[in-house]
């Protein structure tokens, strides 16, 4: 067992949950409310120095009763020790944890991926958008166990939606505002972009209106 677990218990008391060993690696569960504080302490405390964030990911078990878990893999570059810190998120509560981007910039995309794939929200994340799926993706969170392997929509419906997507709406409004280019666009394109083409996909079998 990694001695950091004992140090954590001394420092944070009942904020530290159970600790176990799996395949030689130590896993320690921590309280969701103080996770960032605990991870920050692990990062900076002189005898811990887990300064390298290997990975942030999440796990959902097949047993629907079990909570989701957010997994932080830490590594100390000086001491060459690895530690796995986990947070349990019961499914009946809000799936929310504090972002660790203030501690590690590298968590930015990793947390975005967890948000994209599991629907876990990271509070105070600077830029919490979908990353692998597109921004208007509406079928849910692909790595959740209730998400069917082939997706929620039929292949025909997916193709239909893809064909109806506006190929010009590839820029977010935020990106367009960079260049103040929005006002220079033709009227119809501006209308389509402003509506975001989010909800305007016509019913199946209907006539395509534009584009």
């Amino acid at each position: 067992m990694n001695p950091s677990v004992e140090a954590l218990r001394r420092e944070f008391g009942d904020k530290i949950g159970r600790a176990l060993e799996s395949c030689g690696d130590t896993i320690v569960y921590v309280d969701v409310g103080s996770a960032r504080e605990i991870l920050g302490w692990l990062k900076d405390a002189p005898d811990q120095e887990y300064n390298y964030l290997i990975d942030v990911t999440a796990v959902e078990y097949r047993d629907p009763e079990l909570p989701l878990e957010v997994v932080y893999l830490l590594f100390s570059l000086r001491r060459k020790v690895q530690l796995c810190v986990k947070i349990s998120l019961p499914k009946d509560a809000k799936l929310e944890v504090d972002s660790v981007v203030p501690l590690w910039q590298g968590a930015n995309w990793l947390e975005r991926e967890v948000f994209d794939m599991f629907g876990i929200t990271f509070r105070e994340h600077p830029d919490l958008r979908r990353i692998l799926m597109w921004e208007t993706y509406s079928e849910g969170y692909p790595l959740r166990k209730d998400f069917p392997l082939r997706g929620r929509l039929s292949r025909a419906e997916q193709v239909r939606r893809a064909l109806h997507a506006n190929p010009e709406a590839h820029y977010s409004l935020e990106e367009l505002s960079i260049a103040e280019a929005y006002n220079d666009l033709p009227e119809d394109m501006r209308r389509r972009l402003a509506s975001g083409e989010r909800d305007e996909i016509p019913e199946a079998g209907g006539k395509r209106t534009d584009g």
Partner: peptide
């Protein structure tokens, strides 16, 4: 912007 090659390997 990434994700154009997303194939859901981890899900598979």
């Amino acid at each position: 912007h990434i994700g154009y090659l997303h194939s859901g390997f981890e899900k598979l």
